[in-house]
């Protein structure tokens, strides 16, 4: 059905239902399509950071490069700048739930990492990879997208096993994979809602 183009004509019942369905779908797609860029941003950042730390650790032999993880919040100002383009674009329930999921993941990851480094030593890679998988799977469930649900499951459950078996340095490659999955999630959302 065409857009109203300023017309205000009376419609049949079938036309009305078609208009409601189309308008709701278009609005939903527009909002979700826009939210996909944040998945791509965080995915790229995670992948690049993981690979940089992996290489620095590998070539210098020092695990201290892991402190670079605390630079990850640089993604927030970048996201804020990207958000300026969203001026006037409304938010819907799905976009808000996705925002909550990933904010909670971010806060839990940062707090767990700080505690692991400064207070109680723990297998932080295992914890974060499981949380990353859970956040990814829940996002998939919210988006009603099976590939994203399955990718989250593989990352979380498979990643937990691999995190225990791999040596510390190589565990960073798991995070790089997690980043790639985030980018893939963003692209899936984008193409699903074109």
């Amino acid at each position: 059905m065409e857009k109203s183009n300023g017309q205000n004509k009376e419609m049949t019942a079938a036309e009305s239902l078609a208009l409601i369905t189309e308008t709701l779908n278009n609005s939903r797609k527009d909002i979700l399509n826009n939210s996909s860029k944040y998945f791509v941003l965080w995915g790229c950042l995670l992948t690049v950071m993981s690979l940089v730390i992996y290489m620095l650790w590998h070539f210098t032999g020092s695990p201290k490069w892991n402190f670079l993880w605390f630079a990850m919040p640089i993604g927030y100002p970048i996201a804020a700048v990207m958000g300026r383009q969203d001026k006037g674009r409304p938010q819907n329930e799905i976009g808000r739930i996705l925002g909550y999921i990933w904010t909670v993941f971010g806060v839990f990851s940062i707090c767990t990492s700080v505690i692991a480094v400064y207070a109680v030593p723990m297998h932080v890679t295992l914890l974060i990879v499981v949380m990353l998988g859970i956040a990814e799977s829940i996002s998939g469930a919210v988006l009603k997208n099976w590939p994203v649900i399955i990718a989250g499951f593989i990352l979380g459950v498979g990643g937990a096993v691999v995190a225990v078996l791999m040596k510390s340095e190589a565990q960073l490659l798991l995070f790089a994979l997690g980043g790639v999955l985030l980018v893939a999630t963003g692209l899936t959302i984008k193409f699903q809602n074109k």
């Binding site: 109203s4 009376e10 009305s16 208009l19 709701l24 609005s27 409304p90 938010q91 819907n92």
Partner: peptide
Amino acid sequence: HSELRLAVMSILIGVDEADFTY
């Protein structure tokens, strides 16, 4: 039961709020 008003309501039913430009 009017095309434009229904379109506006269909958008607003799915979002928190929307501005005039949108």
